[in-house]
């Protein structure tokens, strides 16, 4: 059992969905980003997605792009991600969220080793699909980390089954065809996708992309095991610092408990 397995078991007992919050390391500064991640947990986030800043974040919308650009311009290094994981893991389970090239360049085995040593539970890899993931899967297995691949509304049932067999921890279901960013509605394709995913795997299914407020969190929590929120936290941090992040987490945490 990893920390993520324990978390989802506990949420099931409490009859609620888990709340997972994303922030990138280094925005607006290293210290402020880590403080905001801790504030997120204080507000009620159950697990933190620690973002590795990357120059070419193809799955991210404007809010996150601007934030990671700023983090890189401020000189943020990949090695600092492990420091952040070490600090935040003392408060809640962490998974890193990282595009593949920085991981490949760091060395998959070394990345896994340092992530494990820092107390991380796993990694979400948004531009890696199971077919290309052999080096990462071996590295993750060696360190007992949870590899998390995504499913999308366009995924065939066969592909969802492969992701279900390959993942550990949970399955990340992308709610819409699109990039990260807040949306006025989460869309009904997410519920259908969660249903199709449950038919292929017993792993918890968490929904990301587009959730920004308590009502949306409640709507998703009605059918998913976890709700993932990113851009809304980045925007809160930008506009109101760690206090605004804590406040947003409080509201969302209430939302995932409305069942």
């Amino acid at each position: 059992m990893t920390r993520l397995d324990d978390l989802f078991a506990q949420c099931r007992q409490e009859n609620r969905a888990a709340l997972i919050g994303y922030l990138p390391v280094g925005f607006p500064s290293y210290e402020a980003s880590v403080a905001a991640m801790v504030a997120m947990v204080e507000g009620g986030v159950d697990a933190v997605e620690v973002g590795v800043p990357y120059t070419d974040p193809g799955m991210d919308g404007p809010v996150i792009q601007v934030a990671v650009d700023a983090a890189l311009r401020a000189g943020t290094r990949v090695a600092q991600v492990f420091e952040a994981v070490r600090t935040v893991s003392a408060h809640a389970p962490t998974v890193v969220m990282g595009y593949w090239n920085p991981v490949e360049k760091y060395g998959p085995a070394r990345f896994a080793k340092d992530l494990k040593a820092a107390g991380g539970s796993g990694a979400i890899t948004p531009d890696l699909i199971p077919e290309e993931a052999q080096p990462w899967l071996e590295a993750a297995r060696a360190e007992d980390l949870d590899p998390v691949f995504l499913v999308a509304p366009s995924s065939t049932d066969e592909r969802i089954a492969v992701v279900g067999r390959t993942n550990r921890g949970f399955v990340y279901a992308a709610s819409t065809m699109g990039v990260t960013g807040t949306r006025s509605t989460v869309g009904n394709r997410a519920e259908e996708l969660v249903g199709r995913t449950r038919a292929q795997t017993d792993l918890p299914v968490c929904v990301g992309l587009g959730v920004s407020n308590a009502d949306q969190a409640a709507e998703v929590a009605a059918y998913a095991d976890g709700v993932i929120v990113g851009s809304a936290f980045v925007r809160a941090l930008q506009d109101g610092g760690p206090d605004a992040v804590r406040e947003l987490a409080r509201g969302l945490a209430e939302g995932v408990r409305r069942r």
């Binding site: 593949w100 890696l128 077919e131 995504l150 999308a152 366009s154 995924s155 065939t156």
Partner: peptide, 20 residues
């Protein structure tokens, strides 16, 4: 068949694009 030229090429994309 998977688009590899030796160690190069392949598909490093979001899952959403695989169907297309």
């Amino acid at each position: 068949r998977a688009g590899h030229f030796g160690p190069y090429g392949g598909r490093f994309v979001p899952e959403a694009l695989v169907a297309a």
